[in-house]
Amino acid sequence: MSTLRTLDERLIAPGATPHDRTVVYSTAVAGTVLATALAYAAGLSTLPLVLIAIVAFDLYGGAAVNATTAAKRHFHRPGRTWRHHVGFVAIHVQPFLLALVVPGFTWTAAAVVYLLALAGAVITVSVPADVRRPVAFGCTALAIGLALPLAIPAAIGWLAPVLFVKLLLAHLQPL
């Protein structure tokens, strides 16, 4: 198996197409550049810049990845349950990682962002399949509205909306 295919199967999903790779990696790199530029302009030091770049690559790229047909087939294959989906959301602890290094981003704000994503996931997977998509959009809109008034530094103002898009709108929605 080629190195590129192995990387794609880990970062995107088995069966990722050349178009998938182009969109996903372009989005990941553009999001990383944007987030890092905002953090640099805010005067953040090296450690926060590096961690922000890593988180941005994952979240921006993941928002595109989770919308691909390859990822939909992989994450929603037979045998996958609501526990897998909520578990996938639960492992996204990036808000807490950023609270460690970004001045002004409090543990409370990180916890609220994390819990909004988790609550949105639980609600979304708990409703009948025919309303999951509009419920996910509703949860995302409400979560963004609740997260925006938090004291989130402008350098990472993208965090909550991109996290919610990646997890609630892209990951939880089947083909």
Rank of each mutant, 00 (worst) to 15 (best):
T6P: 00
V65L: 01
F75S: 04
L115S: 14
D8I: 00
L168T: 02
F57L: 13
G104C: 13
A154Y: 11
V23M: 11
G138A: 09
A39N: 02
A67M: 10
V24S: 07
P174F: 04
V102Q: 06
Y60T: 00
L100I: 08
L116V: 08
K72T: 07
A141L: 15
H171Y: 03
P95M: 08
L59Y: 05
A170C: 08
I91S: 08
V122P: 04
R133H: 12
A56F: 03
D8Y: 00
S45K: 01
V29D: 01
I12K: 01
T124M: 14
S26V: 08
P174D: 03
N66E: 15
A70V: 02
S26N: 08
L47V: 15
A117F: 00
T69Y: 07
F137D: 05
A90P: 09
V165E: 00
T69V: 13
A41Q: 13
T36L: 12
A110S: 03
V65K: 13
T69I: 13
V33E: 03
Y25I: 09
G61K: 04
K166D: 02
V33F: 09
R133V: 14
A64T: 11
A119D: 07
V65D: 01
V24M: 10
L172A: 05
W107K: 09
Y40H: 08
A160D: 06
Y114P: 00
L150F: 15
N66F: 03
L98N: 09
G157P: 05
V113H: 04
P95W: 14
P18W: 11
D8T: 02
A67I: 01
T106G: 15
H19D: 11
A151V: 13
L38A: 12
A35I: 07
A136Y: 03
D130K: 12
L44Q: 04
T124F: 14
G138V: 09
I54W: 02
A110R: 03
P174A: 05
A110W: 05
T17H: 09
V102S: 13
D58L: 03
A56E: 00
L98D: 08
L34E: 07
T124D: 13
I52L: 12
R77N: 07
L100D: 03
A151S: 15
T69L: 14
P78W: 07
A170I: 00
L163V: 02
F96K: 03
I144E: 14
T108G: 12
L44Y: 08
F137S: 07
T106L: 12
M1W: 04
H85N: 11
L163M: 14
F88W: 09
H92K: 03
L7F: 13
S26E: 07
S126N: 12
A111R: 02
A30E: 07
L98F: 13
R133K: 14
